[in-house]
Structure formats: structure tokens, C-alpha cells
Computed example of a mutant assay.
Amino acid sequence: MSKTVEFYFDLGSPATYLAYTQLPRICAENDSALIYIPMLLGGVFKATGNASPAMIPAKGRYMFEDLDRYAKRYGVPLKFNPHFPINTLMLMRAVTGMQLRHPERFPAFIDCLFKALWVDGRSLDEPATVAAVLTEHGFAPEDVLALTNDETVKAALKDNTETAVKRGVFGAPSMFVGGQLFFGQDRLDFIEEALR
């Protein structure tokens, strides 16, 4: 692998979901490694003074229409989650814990959560719904909950988030190729150019 794409992500971002559906193919076609780096988008927003574009009604309406256009272009399902915005602190701790403790199950884990949020429109703010989603996909909710309370896992997510901010990240998805930052799933063509 000659190059890498560092993918800073938070499950709660629909644009990040779209990038997630495309980056593995882009990296495979360009003989590049894809490195997933979970971060807490709320922490990034707080540190940078940024906010979700969905908080501005007109911009939010446009953003979801535009994301729908991209989903159609990519040929992937996307459904606006009626529970948006989702507080992702516990989810992102779980993701970080799975990456650290059970890396072999990490791809299936984030896949089931992205699908639950952005295809099935489920409320992952509710512990019972999270437990149901995990059980449906062969994960033990009690084991995942234990990961979210692991101090090493909490510290890793915090460190990832702080590192993202230090590197200039202000939102999600954010991707680095070498030292170059690319923000937004609508910048994937620039990532492909950088990898070439």
C-alpha cells in the first residue's frame, strides 16, 4: 500500500455514512490503506465553535436534499433519520472499544450501526433500540456496554478527538491523505486524485 486515507468519522453524520460507503472502493482501486479513526463530532464542534448545518433550517433542508442526490449517484440507500440529531457519545465509545479490543469484528460493527441510523432510521439514542440492533447482528449488548465504560476506551476516543482538532478537523467526515485535509463526502474525487 503506497498511500493511506485517514478517515475521521462519527456515526451521527449522514455525510459520513455516504463517505463510508465509497471509501473502501476508492482505496482498493488506488492500492491504498483506509484507516478508520473514530472521533466525537460533538467534541469537535465544541472545540472549534462549529455546529451541524442542520441547525440552520434552510441549510439543513438543502443538505438533506443534496445528500439524497449523492446517495442516488452512488447507488446506496439513505433515509433521513427522524431522530436526528443523535447523541453519539456512547456509540462512538462502543466503536472505539470494538476497534481496540475486537478489531476483527470492527467492520461488521460499524456497518450494522451505520445501517441502523441511515438506512433503517432507528433511534440509537435509546438503549433498548441499540441493544436490539446489536443483538440482531450477533453482538452481545452487555459486552458492548462494558466497552463504553472502559477507561482506556474513553481516553482513546478523547485523544482521537483532540488530535483531530489539532490537525484542523472541524466537522465530519474529514479525511487526510498525507498532510492534506479533505472535508465532506463531496470531496471524494479530490481524494482519488491525491491517491493517484
Rank of each mutant, 00 (worst) to 15 (best):
L34V: 08
A33K: 14
A19E: 12
A172M: 04
L100P: 06
A71G: 08
T152L: 07
F9V: 10
N87S: 12
S174H: 04
T161I: 01
P127R: 01
P57K: 02
D159H: 11
F190M: 12
D66I: 02
L181R: 01
A108C: 00
P85S: 09
Y8H: 15
N81K: 07
F7K: 07
H137D: 09
A131E: 00
R25V: 15
N50W: 13
L23F: 11
G168D: 04
L100K: 06
I37G: 04
T135L: 00
I110Q: 04
R73C: 06
K3T: 12
V169H: 10
I110H: 01
V76G: 15
L89S: 12
L40N: 09
K72F: 00
M90V: 15
T96H: 08
M39G: 06
L40D: 07
A155V: 10
D68H: 13
Y74F: 09
L100R: 02
A58V: 14
T16P: 14
I86M: 10
G42E: 08
V76L: 02
F139N: 05
F109T: 11
P107E: 09
M175T: 03
H102S: 10
P53V: 13
A164Y: 08
V95T: 15
R187L: 05
A116E: 12
M55Q: 13
V44Q: 03
